[in-house]
Design a protein around this nucleic acid. Structure first.
Length: 111
DNA sequence: GTGCTGACACAGG
DNA sequence: ACCTGTGCCAGCA
């Protein structure tokens, strides 16, 4: 087992366990459906909404990041244009006014 | 170990 | 609808 120094540095490209699991969940969200940051943490049974957000900030580009929203169905600042372009193409249900996703209809139940 | 830092959540005002 | 404060928790320096 190749004893590694106590600093125990992993390879730079390797993701922390938690981050890897977050990305797995996001990968399973079906087209046209969404989850909130808190939902992802809840399904994992670990971490919290904030931690999920941190993962998305660093590694979200690798997955369908637009399918993860805030608890009120809004999109994080700065991502609105790109996200709503996707919502239109995936026909994600929006609320009246179109500024937020209709969670009552678009939220993925995990199945 | 300590102390920030956030693509958050929620309760108040 | 907006702001403010508090709680949260993995990651990082």
């Amino acid at each position: 087992m190749v004893p590694v120094s106590s600093t125990d540095r992993g390879d730079p490209g390797e993701l922390p366990e938690f981050a890897s699991r977050v990305l797995d969940v996001v990968d399973r969200i079906p087209r046209g459906r969404v989850l909130t940051y808190g939902d992802v943490a809840e399904y994992l049974g670990e971490g919290g909404a904030r931690s999920v957000g941190a993962v998305m900030a660093r590694h979200g580009a690798a997955v369908a990041w637009w399918r993860v929203l805030r608890a009120d169905g809004s999109v994080a600042p700065g991502l609105e244009e790109r996200a709503f372009a996707r919502f239109r193409s995936e026909r994600t249900p929006l609320r009246r006014g179109g500024t937020r996703v209709d969670l009552s209809r678009a939220r993925w139940d995990g199945r």
